[in-house]
Amino acid sequence: MSLDTAPTANRPWLLGMREAIPLLGGYVPVAISFGLIAVQSGFSGWEAVLISTLVYAGASQFLFVAMVAAGAPLWFVVLMTLLINARHVVYGPNIAPWLSQSRWWPWLMHGLTDQIFALSHVRLPQLRAEDRMGWYIGASVVAWFSWIGGTAVGAIAGKELTQRWPLLGEVMPFALPALFLVLLAPRFANRLWAITLGATIVVALLLAVSGMKNAAIPIAAACGALVYYGLGILSGRKVSRENMKREGESQNG
């Protein structure tokens, strides 16, 4: 699974499925927790599975179930769950240059979660144009099915599983930061990007530790953008100062 442009033979969907496997470590334990919490909140097992199939958005599903269980007005439940997902608006446009004009793509955006976006953002540019849809379908189907399957397992046997193997739920989610790191790693070679990404990561980490996990992603990304453009302006001024100095020296000389 090289990060360079790889020959994908005739089965790009298989490559997509293979490359989405690391996501399972993060998806399945969280999906099991969702299934368990949904059942404990008064939803039936199949209702929990249906929510995972249709909504397919981690944090907003937890919020949906918790607010319904707390008796919140339903219009407010819908509004809040959509607000949590608002960060997804930048994902589609970011991968658009690598997508064809096929009418299937908008429907396939159902599978564009945070993690599938991160994977697609790095992998789609490296694939041949004709392989991209197959790869995306393979990757997103693995992620979607693991989310649905994990919810079903959680709804049926979540309590027993978490009691018997508590360590599994603690260790497997580390697959997500490991995957994000691998996707970001090539950018650290550039100094401007290294500083920008470092600042974004620290801000997101601090906000998440303070309990603001959902707000952390857009806020940290906005802070990172400020750092990126701020450094760009500073380095631009430095370059123009040096140019002026050189021009002055040549005139004096």
């Binding site: 945070d114 976006f117 992603i217 990172g224």
Partner: peptide, 15 residues
């Protein structure tokens, strides 16, 4: 913004 969103997700997932 694309790479920054991934970096932010990385930071959050580190907890």
């Amino acid at each position: 913004l694309g790479p920054l969103m991934i970096a932010a997700m990385f930071g959050v997932s580190l907890v």
